[in-house]
């Protein structure tokens, strides 16, 4: 499939969020006036303190909850199931093998295992787990389970992949490895990703756009562009550019937290 994405300014629009508010129980304002345009090939990070509505934004995009005000529109209309999702936990079915877990999105569209076997094996190969197709989730380490979860999210080649702090529960070494692998994957299949994280370093390393959010009410306070070319690797991680972007994002995050008494 097509590799590197078009330059930032020339990408086709995938989805647009316009003036979205989300109020829970009539008085908890989780999001206020959210605007975001997602373009094909973007890697967008939502960065912000706990409770600023990052997960709520993802749930709105996934159509699991509906906006109190404003709207979300998809270029070419929304198709059910045209999303991949990765949660903070791997969220695998413990009774099913690795391959059966990756089969799930196809299975729910009525596809038999054999008709999509090649895609499943290919997705597992891309995350380095093709040798483990017949293993059960309990036989895998935390990092490997997360890879299965990623394979499941991208096996259908969805228009957009949503990731909610997928690596937050992993140790730092595993997290770095998965960050590298995620970027390699993105290059290979050219997907569009919205990635939620608490980590400044992770967001800078991965994304070309960082949306910094503040809490109470949840809102966007800054959008940063990380204009460093992909593929990014350890060289980028140790470069002065990287350090400068981290400083910028970190400053924005501090600004986001200023209003809130620590």
């Amino acid at each position: 499939m097509a590799a590197t994405s078009a330059p930032l300014g020339q990408r086709a629009e995938v989805m647009r969020i316009e003036g979205v508010d989300k109020v829970f129980n009539g008085d908890v304002v989780a999001l206020k006036g959210l605007n975001l345009t997602v373009n094909s090939g973007d890697f967008i990070s939502l960065l912000g303190p706990s409770g600023c509505g990052k997960s709520t934004a993802l749930r709105l995009i996934a159509d699991l909850i509906h906006p109190t005000r404003g709207r979300i529109t998809w270029a070419g209309g929304q198709k059910a199931g045209d999303l991949g999702v990765v949660f903070q936990e791997p969220t695998l079915m413990p009774w099913a093998t690795v391959a059966q877990n990756v089969w799930l999105p196809f299975r729910l569209r009525g596809k038999t295992y054999n008709s999509v076997k090649d895609e499943i094996i290919e997705a597992l190969r891309l995350v380095g787990l093709d040798k483990f197709q017949n293993a059960y989730p309990r036989e895998l380490s935390g990092g490997m389970k997360m890879r299965v979860s990623i394979a499941r999210a991208m096996v259908t080649k969805p228009r957009l992949i949503l990731m909610d702090e997928p690596f937050a529960a992993l140790d730092e070494i595993t997290r770095f490895r998965l960050n590298n692998d995620l970027l390699a994957l993105k290059e290979k299949i050219g997907c569009t990703v919205i990635f939620v994280t608490h980590s400044v370093f992770e967001s800078v390393f991965l994304s070309d756009r960082i949306v910094v959010m503040a809490a109470r009410p949840g809102r966007v306070i800054r959008e940063l562009t990380v204009d460093a070319p992909y593929p990014r690797d350890e060289v980028f991680r140790t470069s002065s550019d990287y350090a400068a972007y981290c400083r910028q994002a970190s400053d924005a995050l501090h600004e986001a937290m200023e209003g809130v008494a620590a």
Binding site: A62, A80, E89, P105, L108, R109
Partner: peptide
């Protein structure tokens, strides 16, 4: 698992 439930909903099960 409630996340799996969400996943099923997202996939239009």
């Amino acid at each position: 698992d409630h996340n799996l439930r969400d996943l099923f909903r997202i996939y239009g099960a």
